[in-house]
Design a protein around this nucleic acid. Structure first.
Length: 424
RNA sequence: GGAGAGAUGGCCGAGUGGUCGAAGGCGCACGCCUGGAAAGUGUGUAAACGCCGAAAGCGUUUCAAGGGUUCGAAUCCCUUUCUCUCCGCCA
């Protein structure tokens, strides 16, 4: 959520920046400005009204003590009048505040200056490419066939037990999955991240805190009896650790990581993109979440991106890094880098990580602040997060790219976790 | 799920209708004391919003949340949430 002060002080800047995200803010901002003026006027009147009431009350108190109860009657009558006006003012203020809130929720985060212009994924800027992204010169098998051949992931069985998008990992499939989780977590811990095991369900307040609610309600599984939501990413519980928290400057940076299963309804998605492991309702991911001082958040974003890249390098997978354009970047993000691995059998790039700086957008909703030592004032912290990494597509690329006549070669770095070097 | 107790500032803890934003303590910050430290001592110690160019200052709100009684509520009533204890169930 954007800060109202920013809109109040520099509306044109907000309008201009949001054009990059193809969001026309002009109308909404003029509404907010008008409501903002209203609310302040009414607030002032309300405050004055309340002050008057308090004064009169104090006088009544005095009179009662002096035993002059009769004289208090006049004052009571005046208070009754004030209360009438108060009611009206309260209603006006509350209504304006609600409307402002509604509108602020509709406004996306401002994109960083480096976000390229563009409308679709095709306009994303490729900032880095690594590894051999050429295709096999023979008929390579896509992973959905490979997993059947080696009997390591069973999609049909998942359908039987639950439904589409809930695969069952078996034998070496389950083991390599666990190996990837361990590898990602160990690497993160070595890089100074604190490992967190978060709850997989969150309450409504947490879902609001990180912005899943109110706008993305349909994307989460909702447990209605208890009003809990299954997390779509570990970002939600891990970031919400810091909801309503006031930090000291010396606390920065706060670096957490965590593995979780992730649950996404992905309502309305269909077609070839979702085949096999490409898109699931339940999948595994290791997430990194950083809370940082506003002055250093972009340095930190760079480090997080580099860190995520190092994982793909170690796994020996060809990949590229994209700087997302204004049209493709998420609602909440100011700057996002996507990491995509190349899947040689599918002959396409698959997104395995998204590393973003949300600046103060999430922190504003979370009320995550710190005391600025120089000024003594409260400021919003910056939040960042990234996948490091999401497993299914990494596994898909790994299976496809490492296939040989004799089996699938397990990357060197995973062997100490799997205990085998070949899936055959 | 049943029965009971409770929720106060960074923490502990007092406060059952009238200058209570809230005693006292701890912690923290700054000063004095000291060669330095400890001890001692003094002062200060929340946030949101608004008025003001800024600061100072002032005003309003906030004692789990929401509603009610009252001229006036941390204090009384109702609802909700959460925590604790005992019982039941249970990996």
């Amino acid at each position: 959520m954007l800060q109202i002060q920013l809109i109040r002080e520099n509306p044109q800047f907000v309008i201009d920046r949001l054009k990059v995200k193809h969001f026309d803010a002009e109308g909404i901002i003029s509404e907010i400005s008008q409501l903002d003026v209203d609310i302040r006027q009414n607030k002032k009147s309300l405050d004055d009204n309340l002050m008057e009431q308090k004064k009169l009350s104090a006088e009544i108190g005095k009179l009662f003590k002096e035993g002059k109860a009769a004289e208090a009657a006049d004052l009571k009558a005046r208070i009754a009048e004030l209360k009438e006006t108060e009611k009206q003012l309260q209603a006006k203020v509350a209504e304006a505040a609600d409307k402002i809130q509604e509108r602020l929720f509709l406004m996306p985060n401002l994109p960083h200056a480096s976000v390229p212009e563009g409308k679709t994924a095709a306009d994303n800027e490729i900032v880095y490419t690594e590894g051999d992204a050429s295709n096999f010169d023979y008929d390579a098998m896509p992973h959905w066939d490979l997993v059947k051949k080696y009997d390591i992931i069973d999609f049909d069985l998942g359908c039987k037990i639950t439904g589409a998008g809930f695969p069952v990992y078996k034998g070496k499939g389950a083991r390599i999955q666990r190996a990837l989780i361990d590898f990602f977590l160990d690497e993160a811990v070595q890089h100074g991240f604190t490992e967190i095991q978060p709850p997989y369900m969150v309450n409504e307040a947490s879902a609001y805190g990180t912005g899943q609610l109110p706008d993305k309600e349909g994307q989460m599984y909702h447990c209605e009896v208890d009003d809990f939501y299954l997390i779509p990413t570990a970002e939600v519980p891990i970031t919400n650790i810091y909801r309503d928290v006031i930090l000291k400057e010396s606390d920065f940076p706060i670096k957490n990581c965590g593995y979780s299963a992730c649950f996404r309804r992905e309502a309305g998605s269909y077609g070839k993109d979702v085949r096999g492991l490409n898109r699931l309702h339940q999948f595994d991911k290791v997430e990194i979440v950083v809370i940082e001082h506003p002055d250093r958040s972009y340095e930190t974003l760079e480090k997080m991106k580099t860190y995520a890249m190092s994982l793909l390098t170690k796994l020996g997978l060809p990949f590229r890094v994209l700087r997302l354009c204004g049209g493709d970047i998420s609602f909440t993000s100011a700057l996002t880098f996507d990491l995509e691995v190349y899947s040689k059998a599918q002959q396409r790039w698959l997104e395995v990580s998204s590393v973003s700086n949300f600046e103060s957008f999430q922190a504003n909703r979370l009320k995550l602040r710190f005391k600025d030592e120089a000024t003594g004032k409260m400021r919003l912290a910056h939040t960042l997060n990234g996948s490091a990494l999401a497993l299914p597509r990494v596994l898909a690329a790994l299976l496809e790219n490492n296939q040989t006549d004799k089996g699938i070669i397990v990357p060197e770095v995973l062997r100490k976790y799997t205990g085998f070097d070949m899936i055959d």
